[in-house]
């Protein structure tokens, strides 16, 4: 213990506990209120998913659709919004759940809104996901397009969206699983990435639908 510390003044009198408690409540209200204001400044609409702040142009890409025809995604060119998911047809749980839930969200939209939305599954397993297999898979879950992109273009496309994937449980050339990012990326009619949902958020169909309706009505052109 130094001489300095011995000469430290005793300090002010403690506040009454009720005044300290009131200040504590005020401080918590300011922190949480500040977080709310920050979130609203970043994105005026209270997205349930994670908003892109600011929205950024979605990367274009090309591949082959489930009918084996060349397919090109040019963001903003169709005048429709696009929900993009990276998955694969041998996926045991996440991909089927994701496609099932996104179809439920789609069905919850009005007919007019449904016409303004495309759903795209980009296969992260182009070796096994043939066009025929993709077609059967996406049609089983509803109305979506299955897109096959060969490597190395696939890894570039996935990376440009912030998605990753990795082969695991390799038991043979045709026997393996693929771990992959489980987000759905929503591109608006203006070609901007607006929001993403993790697949665990999708069971909240009404909240996802609310995000989707807002983006359909408010594209960034």
């Amino acid at each position: 213990m130094s001489d300095e510390s011995r000469s430290v003044p005793p300090g002010p009198r403690p506040r009454p506990w009720y005044l300290s408690a009131g200040l504590a409540l005020l401080a918590v209200a300011l922190v949480l209120g500040g977080a709310w204001v920050y979130a609203r400044v970043q994105s005026p609409f209270p997205f349930y998913g994670t908003a892109y702040t600011p929205p950024i142009p979605a990367p274009a890409f090309r591949g082959t659709d489930q009918d084996g025809r060349p397919w090109t995604f040019t963001p903003g060119a169709t005048g429709r919004a696009t929900a993009i998911f990276f998955g694969f047809t041998h996926c045991p749980n996440i991909c089927p759940l994701t496609l099932a839930y996104i179809e439920r969200v789609r069905q919850a939209l009005s007919e007019e809104e449904r016409q303004k939305l495309d759903v795209v599954l980009v296969s992260v397993d182009p070796e096994r996901d043939t066009p025929e297999r993709l077609k059967a898979y996406v049609e089983y879950f509803g109305k979506a397009q299955g897109i096959r992109i060969p490597e190395p273009a696939l890894s570039e496309v996935a990376r440009s969206y912030g998605a990753g994937y990795q082969k695991v449980d390799l038991k043979g050339p045709q026997d393996y699983q693929v771990n992959h990012t489980t987000a759905i990326y929503l591109v608006d009619a203006g070609g901007k990435l607006r929001v993403l949902w993790d697949y665990t958020q999708l069971p909240a169909v009404e909240r996802v639908k609310r995000d989707l309706t807002y983006v359909l009505e408010n594209p960034r052109l």
Binding site: A35, W36, Y38, A39, Q42, S43, P46, F47, Y48, G49, T50, A51, T53, R207
Partner: peptide
């Protein structure tokens, strides 16, 4: 508040 939590 999922929206605030997610986006902050």
């Amino acid at each position: 508040n999922a929206s605030v939590v997610t986006n902050t």
